[in-house]
Design a protein around this nucleic acid. Sequence first.
DNA 1: CAGGTCAAGTCGTGAT
DNA 2: ATCACGACTTGACCTG
Length: 257
Amino acid sequence: MGMDDDLCTPGLILGLGLPPAPDTPSNIREKSKPGRPPGRLDLDPCLTLALSGETACREARERPFYGNRSSFEDESGGGCEGEDSRGAASSFSSGKAVKREREVSSGDDAEIERASSKASDEEDDLGGGDNKARKKLRLTKDQSALLEESFKQHITLNPKQKQALARQLKLQPRQVEVWFQNRRARTKLKQTEVDCEFLKKCCETLSDENRRLQKELQELKALKLAQPLYMHMGGAATLSMCPSCERVCRGGDKGPS
DNA sequence: CAGGTCAAGTCGTGAT
DNA sequence: ATCACGACTTGACCTG
């Protein structure tokens, strides 16, 4: 009678452990500043069946942040060249453009940029001479290819690189900068999707294993109910998890290897 | 025309 | 205070 549940808890603990949910694009926000370049999600799920006294489940490890942000760029990054002047790329937000005027470039750069803006506008000219509306810049294949190429080399640009690339592409440095920003955003989004898929698979796998272990636990409980004496002889204390075959064995029983 | 893509805008934040 | 960056938004353009 009384010996069922109380006696029946041999101290077996079943635990399903998952690391904290992955950073979603939204909660990743500023915390993730250290920068996670597109990389593998380091997930280490844990599922354990243990005797009491042991920890039910390993602490889920903290996922390391994805490695570096391209700090290597910063060595030469002076930012003193007025490289990134005014949001002149678009003539559309007249008043708002003021914001972007933090780097007031000297006339020289300003002219280069104005010229390059014109050049790029005319390059893929769609015929509309109306500059009232913001005109969509479409990068040419060559421009995109070159941008992609340099993105492969470094995902951020220092001012000199930006300048050089802009000159090469006949674009404004600001346009190059924006392209890199958007490119990083796309990369991150893509990586998030990949992570998400990976986590789903992990979840399925762990659920399966959880079910299996729950079943095993039930079997063990049933076994103990059938052999109450076994408990008093200290049998339960000798139950242990065989690391190699991942089954519960008696103390004396050794796994296959 | 709806929905997708992407260049470019705004805003908030951390680093210096 | 300034700057660079990321997140989010806007708007032009494209496509089915």
